[in-house]
Design a protein around this nucleic acid. Sequence first.
RNA 1: GCCCAGGUGGUGUAAUUGGUAAACACGUAGCCUUGAGGUGGCUAUGGGAGCAAUCCCGUGGAGGUUCAAGUCCUCUCCUGGGCACCA
Length: 837
Amino acid sequence: MKDRPDQERFNHQQVDKKWQARWLQTKRYQITGPVSAADKAYILDMFPYPSGEGLHVGHPLGYIGSDILARYMRARGKKVLHPMGYDAFGLPAENYAIKSGLHPAVSTNQAIERFRQQMQKIGLSYDWDREVNSSDPDYYRWTQWLFLKLYEMDLAYRAKAPVNWCPKDQTVLANEQVKDGKCERCDSLVLQKELEQWFFRMTSYADEYLTGLADLDWPEPIKLMQRNWVGRSEGALVSFPMEGGSKTIEVFTTRIDTIFGAAFVVLAPEHPLVGELTTSMQAAAVTTYVENATKKTPLERTSAVDQTGIFTGSYALNPLTKERLPIWISDFVIGGYGTGAVFGDAHDERDFAMAKRYDIPLKVTVLPSDNRQKEPILALEVCFTDDGVLIDSGAYTGLTSAEARPKIIEELQKSGLAQPKVQYKLRDWLVSRQRYWGAPIPIVYCQNCLENSKFQIPNSKIDWAEINGEKFAIIPIPEDQLPVRLPMDIDFRPTGESPLARSTEFHHAVTCPKCHKQARREVDTMDTFVDSSWYFLRYISPHDQRQAFDREEVKNWLPVDWYVGGAEHAVLHLLYSRFMTKALADGGYLTFREPFTRLRNQGLILGEDNRKMSKRWGNVVNPDEVVSLYGADALRCFEMFMGPFQDSKPWSTNGLIGVRRWLERVWRLTKRLAISDQRLGEDNKRLQNLLNKTIQKVTSDIENFQFNTAISQLMILTNGLEKETSIDKATWQTFFQLLAPFAPHLAHELWEKSSFSDFPDESWPEVDRAALKDETIIIPVQVNGRVRGQLKVEPEMPKETLIQIAKELPTVGAYLKDKELKQTIVVPGRIVNFVIL
RNA sequence: GCCCAGGUGGUGUAAUUGGUAAACACGUAGCCUUGAGGUGGCUAUGGGAGCAAUCCCGUGGAGGUUCAAGUCCUCUCCUGGGCACCA
């Protein structure tokens, strides 16, 4: 029978299994003693939420990229820490439990089991002994410990605040979880509600989030999003005294230069002075307006096109001009930003629209830009040209408004009329959740302790909380009593109060750790983002029963060198992790202030129909099927070959087949090519150069996360090898080494089959410098910028020779004949260009 | 509305950073192999003119800089993402 190529097929199932089993048997790197920053590589993937649906083909894109990097770094002799875990607390498991009755702990563990198997099938080289699971008491115990530390450091506090309330999920949402005024998860319109909640003081590091970005190797768009999120603006606080009253209205402005043109003052409906300022004449109208405004959902409020408002009946005085300014209320002013009050003037679109609507007289004169030099201008009035140039405010003639601002503030500060102020959009982080499936907040509320504290020395600070009108002392659970375990048998249907409140045992059968009288527990759980804000520390000593992380080992391994994950975490998770790191550093637990040195984002893999992969569209591709049909290496290489790592791109089974075809060709090469012990001879410069180029390209491409072109280059090398009949051993080995990070199963198998010794895990090919030269290259010859011929030349050929032989090309000569040569441009090794008239 | 990122063949994309546009694949066509099938092999494949050598056009659009532009500048259109009454 004829020896048909397809009888030599690469049996990926067998090969995958063999090498995956080997990885699991391998004793992985054990952390011992100090590791220098230069020797280590902490390569981390954002840990997944283990959903019941398992991974689809888009999830592992990032894992494959980081795995290639990890394998490459090991080959380079680095000590690599490459762990994986599960962000296992959270709403979906709880919602699923409500629907199916299956306890979240059970469904979550099933999902984790499945995730792990799926990841192992792809051949991801994680250190499986280091898995963490945020819903495990051994983990959340330390999340609770962290809460206590923040509380000690006054970075966790309890406050009454208007909170985003999702009526469907019956829970409070963080600002970050509200999208377009709707719940991020269930799309219900979000309402506002006043509740006492736990907050983390994110804002204490507002400036550091900005300055710290300078030293981080992160994608620029992500940095920008963080900057926008922090939303720093410099301006001034100005006090507007009330006419005929003792109170003043504090106003924040970034446009102090427009203060002379202030025409009215606007308060947010929530502003505390609203009641006091409203005259009896206006009382009814104001009450109606304020009620309507607070009833509105955030969406309704932000989507309003008109600047509606209501006059309070009172007046304030411009502190500079002493002019009477009517005080209005409008819901375009946000209670939670700045001072919740603004002054209105003509330069601002919203102010302008409102003034127009209610016929409030404006005070700024806007002059056409060709009118700059004209007089006269009222003594204290600020005038602008219509392109925003300040032309007169007395002392600052000729300055742009941006130039004038700091000077005006300085001037006003001298007379006590204003003070500089930096304002941030960033808010503190609301971490309380009225949900079951999360880490319990380690606090009890004790009435007895509050009573007793009245008799203590006046200065002893005791925090108290108000729950349903009753007052309690806030008592943190002592560290050695952690974890506060989540009760397992509980009715977790949402009713608006935390499900934990329904557990008598959890809620009431508790004694105060301080006075040992009966107390009640905090029944809220923590936002799952708290769990994920520190998990990268737990991987260092995941089984440590005495501490959250081993401080010495953390010093060795952190910060994370490469962090790989989706861009959807640009602000939330990444900012929370930065906050936690800074807080722990201030607490003396860490010696660094930024958790992630490098960040790389992977793109989305869309369905073959170019839509987001989802059950709803029926376009989900399961990696298990791909792996069993085409092999783990085909999946890995194809996902890397599809396009730039960070881009979104549609799945294509045909493309996958193409990559599989390539691996098959590599497999067959081993059959066909004779292997010689001789080094490549001088006669095979072509192959030598190709090999060198491939080493260079694959190496730099991996380091730059340009895996798609690395695969292309490996394909080019394969095409080159196919032209040979025999090959030297060294070339062959180099090829397998280069292939190994991408297609580890195939590469290891081929190495072994070729009867080389054990695969060298800590070795990476070097470019053979001596071989890297003397190949002729082809360069274009242009006439007037158009290619008219090609030249085969030595790279080092001198200019004069180049010009001469270029002129002799028949195709070029024809153009140059009888023409005056104006200029000749020669870039050696690149191009020759003749410029003629 | 504001701020980013990006528009290159039928498709995914590449381009040594200003130097032969389309590498590497997919798809398609023809041929080969096979009893058959294709996750097998070979060849061709941007558009147009021509028997051909060869020529013209071509990187969303319009201008510009340059010996030379996918790459730089100005304006403009479209797509994706983020923020959104932040004073």
